Simulated assay, not measured.
Amino acid sequence: MASPRVFTSLDELGTAVGTELGPGDWLEVDQKRIDLFAEATGDHQWIHVDPGRAAEGPFGTTIAHGYLTLSLLPALVPRLMRVEGVRMGVNYGLNRVRFPAPVPVGARLRAAARILDVREVEGGAQVTLAVTVEREGGEKPVCVAETVSRLFT
């Protein structure tokens, strides 16, 4: 099990711009997770939730929603880094997101990231990461995202 990189403060994080993090530990995407995401979002397209029909489809099985893969970043990024002294973090936005490859049910995913920018904001820092999510055995990443978060002390 890989340990996340621990930064002792936002100042230390600020000196780490350009640092590569990870890859982190694997996380499995099972059908239950896909079904719960479909229920939460109202996206019940058969390619995600109907294993029988999806078996006859282009991927031979159900696949995770692209936005489900993106929504796993709050579970995957803490496997890469942690900043001590932060009382709260919020997602501020995304500069760019792509889903170059599908995530078949049962796939194991992990992330790696590069710290692109850390800038001071009132009460904390705004952190921009280039995050790449890969599928075990996959040739292409399943998600590439430039995330913007705000960390408050």
Rank of each mutant, 00 (worst) to 15 (best):
F59N: 01
L10A: 04
I63P: 04
Y67D: 13
A38Q: 02
V131E: 10
Y92W: 12
G66Y: 08
R87S: 11
R5L: 03
Y92V: 14
E122I: 13
L68K: 13
R5F: 01
I63A: 00
G138F: 02
S71R: 08
R53W: 09
E84T: 15
M1R: 03
I47K: 12
D35S: 03
L70V: 15
V127E: 04
L36P: 12
T61F: 05
S3Y: 08
T132M: 00
P141L: 00
H65N: 12
A101P: 05
E134T: 09
A112W: 07
E84R: 15
M88F: 09
P104Q: 11
A2I: 10
P100T: 02
P104V: 07
A125I: 15
R82L: 15
G137A: 10
G138K: 01
V121T: 05
A64Y: 09
R87C: 00
E120N: 09
E39V: 08
L116C: 14
L94N: 09
S3D: 12
W26Q: 07
L13H: 00
I63G: 03
G89R: 14
L27S: 11
A2K: 10
V127R: 03
D35V: 00
M88A: 12
G60I: 01
M1E: 01
W46R: 08
R87D: 10
E134K: 02
G42S: 02
L109C: 04
W26M: 06
R110V: 04
P51M: 06
E134A: 10
L116S: 14
A113Q: 12
D25L: 08
R87Q: 11
C143K: 04
H44V: 11
V118C: 10
V105E: 11
V142Q: 03
T153S: 04
H48V: 05
W46N: 07
T153K: 06
E20W: 00
G89N: 10
Q45P: 03
H48L: 01
V29C: 05
A112F: 03
M88S: 12
D30E: 02
F99L: 02
R150W: 03
V17G: 08
K32E: 10
F152H: 09
D50P: 04
T62G: 07
V133R: 00
L94I: 06
D117A: 10
P74D: 11
A125Y: 13
M88H: 03
E134G: 08
R96M: 11
P4M: 03
R96H: 13
A145I: 01
E28I: 02
G57Q: 11
F99K: 00
D11R: 06
Q45S: 02
R108K: 15
L70R: 15
R96Q: 15
D25N: 14
K140P: 03
M81G: 06
Q126Y: 08
A130G: 13
R119N: 06
A2M: 13
G137I: 06
G60K: 00
L129K: 07
L72S: 10
V118Q: 12
G123K: 07
G124C: 02
T19A: 15
L13F: 01
A2H: 12
R33A: 13
L116W: 13
P104E: 11
V121K: 08
V17W: 09
I63W: 07
V6L: 08
E122P: 13
A54M: 15
D117C: 05
G106E: 05
T128M: 06
V17F: 05
P74N: 13
S149I: 03
R110H: 10
G42M: 06
